[in-house]
Design a protein around this nucleic acid. Structure first.
Lengths: 132, 132
DNA sequence: TCTTGACCTTCCCATGATGGGAAGCCCTAA
DNA sequence: TTAGGGCTTCCCATCATGGGAAGGTCAAGA
């Protein structure tokens, strides 16, 4: 399997496969005589794992830990759970931040009549009624 | 006022003030004979506007539009409202994405007993029970 | 067998907003 | 006069991703 086929099979772009290899997230692929990277079912399965973890928003360093745990028969599920819940916490922190922004803005926008007149509580909140 | 004082007064770091100037978000500051940037109350007010808009998560290109509207006496508040609501929409899209990730992960983590045994529904979701 | 088009390789660059740091100049207080 | 702190510009790094160029390779059709 060439990199393009592995990309299609795993849902990870060829570009990203090379990148993940370059930063050591995945092992170096075998090469054909011509220097082409060569992939089998095993490598594609790893790529799919990475893809799924990225879809869940895990940052690459955490995926590295997840991959190590995945390959460790003596792992403690507690370690996996901790990584997952830490990530959930970080997601919810960001969600709360963004929700606060959205709430503030929606509130301001509700007070803005949104017509052809210049008066606007949104701009007044940002910096006052008129530019200095 | 030197850049450091303007930074303190506006809440925008000196680094970012120079950056905003370099990308044309704010006008070039006046200079002293020695080449130091020089700021007055007017400039600080602009910086505070930018700061507040950044705090609300507006991307720089949108802040550029907001600044232009702020300075336009003939603006239509509808234009400001549209920028704000578009941004709210983009925030809520991202929030929904992240919430879906968090929900999935929390659900998986609930099913993970989190003890010393290796069995883990989180890893099973990501790639199967054992690494290939 | 030769050509052609699709694929692969590496390398460089860009994103967005921010910080770190180096080298060198300037200003103020002691 | 000197010391320290602030200013200048310039380069680099982040994080994960894509774009693109220059050049080598492979497979199918004429």
């Amino acid at each position: 399997m060439n990199i393009g086929q592995a990309a299609k099979a795993s849902g990870v772009s060829a570009k990203m496969i090379r990148y993940y290899e370059s930063i050591g997230l995945i092992p170096e692929a075998a090469r054909t005589d011509a220097g082409y990277r060569s992939y089998g079912a095993r490598e594609v399965q790893i790529l799919r794992f990475v893809r799924r973890a990225r879809d869940l928003g895990f940052p690459v360093p955490v995926i590295e830990e997840l991959l190590a745990l995945w390959g460790d028969r003596d792992r403690h599920s507690a370690d996996v759970k901790r990584l997952a819940l830490d990530h959930v916490e970080s997601l919810e922190r960001k969600i709360a931040e963004m929700q606060a922004m959205a709430d503030t803005l929606r509130h301001l926008a509700e007070a803005c009549c949104g017509d052809a007149r210049p008066d606007c509580p949104i701009l007044e909140d940002l910096g006052g009624p008129t530019a200095p």
